[in-house]
Each structure stands twice: as structure tokens, then as C-alpha cells.
């Protein structure tokens, strides 16, 4: 147990855990994006998918795992950030970046925005705590009308805009994450590094576009609010 603790708090161990938890969250995001696309097949498709998910026996195990991964990722990030700040008590008067990307420089800030967004997103669409619409959404027999919730929420420009900006920030966060992930786990070889250099931006652009397409589609009227009889 002591050895495991030493590993987790070590400079490399912390990063490995951040990389692995981040990678699993990324895989979840891919699944989430694919599920989201069902909204374009219509109200029925999305709602039955949501119904299937919510009645899955694995639901709470999955949610607990994701929460644990997110907590680990966030706590280690804050810990590392504070240690890194402490390692340079006196700042330089002149700072010049050579290879440092904007994405890498702002990881802690983009992370904080994403964390706030996740809380809002769960409260908004998973728990339904934040009422985003004055529309009375009719629910079917014990079936939450996810489609209408989403569409009603994104009909409000400020909500849609908040989602679009947050999703772009996720893209920014991923820009450094994906490359960093392989380096931290010890994969750095020219045989596949060039592949990652091309593949990572492609994955990020596709993923971000898929997520953003929904609030934009609602905002521009491509996804109508259908009130069920």
C-alpha cells in the first residue's frame, strides 16, 4: 500500500494517473458524442436510447466510475499545479515561449472551465435541476423526454452559446492532452509520433464538431420542438 501511495504522489506516477483517467474520460466522450448523434434521427430514437441507458443495470456503476476518474484527474491536476507554482517562487521579468503551445499553457484554466461546465451540464440535462425553459415539457409514461429537454434548453441563445464555448474549450484542452498522454505513458517514437500528430487534431476536430452541431442545429432551427400528443 505504501508503494502505491509513493507511486501516486511521485511526479511521474501522478502524471500517469492523470493520463489514464483522462484517456478513459476521452473514450467516454467518444461514446457520448456517438450517442448524441441519435438526436438527428429524431425524437423517438434519442428518447428510447436514453430510456435504455437509464434502465441499464450498469448505470450507477458506470456513473460512480466516471465520477471517481474525474475526481482523481481534477485533484491530481490541482496538486501538480500547486507544486509547480511552488517550484518557481520568483517569476522571470521576461518570458519567452519557444515550443509552448497556447493549449499547453492554459491546461489548468481550460480544465477549470470544463469542470464548471460538467457540473452545469449534469445539473441541466441529467438531473434537470436548472430549468432552462418555461415550456411545460410533457413526459411520456415514465419516459423522460430527453429530446424536448435538449431542444428547449438550446432554444435559449445564452445556453447554446455557453455550450458551444465550453465545447471549444474541451477541444483546446484535448489538443495538449492527447499528445501529452502518449509522452507520459512513455510512448515517444518517430514511427508513430507523426501519426499522432495528424490523428490527434482530426479526432479533436471531429469530436468537437459532433458535440457543437447539436446546440447549433437547435439554435438555427434544424431540430424542431415537437410537443407529443
Amino acid at each position: 500500500m505504501q508503494k502505491l501511495k509513493d507511486f501516486i504522489v511521485s511526479p511521474i506516477g501522478s502524471k500517469v494517473i492523470m493520463a489514464l483517467s483522462g484517456a478513459m474520460i476521452l473514450l467516454f466522450l467518444v461514446g457520448h458524442a456517438l450517442g448524441n448523434l441519435l438526436i438527428f434521427r429524431g425524437q423517438e430514437s434519442l428518447n428510447s436510447y436514453a430510456y435504455w441507458l437509464q434502465n441499464s443495470p450498469l448505470l450507477w456503476g458506470f456513473r460512480a466510475t466516471m465520477l471517481l476518474l474525474l475526481m482523481l484527474h481534477v485533484m491530481l491536476a490541482v496538486r501538480l499545479y500547486l507544486q509547480n507554482k511552488k517550484a518557481r517562487p520568483v517569476a522571470y521579468a521576461v518570458n519567452k515561449d519557444m515550443q509552448l503551445t497556447f493549449s499547453a499553457k492554459t491546461m489548468i484554466f481550460s480544465g477549470a472551465i470544463i469542470f464548471a461546465f460538467i457540473i452545469f451540464h449534469i445539473a441541466h440535462l441529467t438531473l434537470g435541476w436548472i430549468s432552462t425553459t418555461s415550456l411545460e415539457v410533457e413526459a411520456g409514461q415514465q419516459m423522460i423526454d430527453v429530446y424536448s429537454n435538449v431542444v428547449a434548453g438550446f432554444k435559449l441563445p445564452e445556453i447554446a452559446l455557453f455550450y458551444v464555448i465550453s465545447l471549444l474549450v474541451i477541444g483546446l484542452h484535448l489538443h495538449h492532452s492527447i499528445k501529452s498522454l502518449f509522452q507520459t505513458l512513455g510512448f515517444h517514437h518517430e514511427n508513430f509520433h507523426q501519426m499522432i500528430d495528424y490523428l490527434a487534431p482530426a479526432v479533436i476536430v471531429i469530436l468537437t464538431l459532433v458535440f457543437i452541431s447539436i446546440p447549433l442545429a437547435v439554435l438555427f432551427g434544424y431540430l424542431p420542438l415537437v410537443v407529443q400528443p
Partner: peptide, 29 residues
């Protein structure tokens, strides 16, 4: 009291001996 690596790769750019950051991956492994 050294900090942790954030994979920024500024080190390899500043290194007067041009040692690449891929050695850090070797250390991580």
C-alpha cells in the same frame, strides 16, 4: 523541490546540447 513535467518541451528547445524530450518518455517508461 523541482516541479513536475507538463510535456511543454521548452527544455529540449533550451538545452545547449539539444537533448530531445523523447528521453523523458524513456524515463517515464
Amino acid at each position: 523541490g523541482f516541479g513536475n513535467c507538463s510535456n511543454h518541451y521548452e527544455c529540449e528547445a533550451a538545452c545547449p546540447k539539444n537533448i530531445p524530450a523523447s528521453y523523458i518518455a524513456q524515463l517515464n517508461r
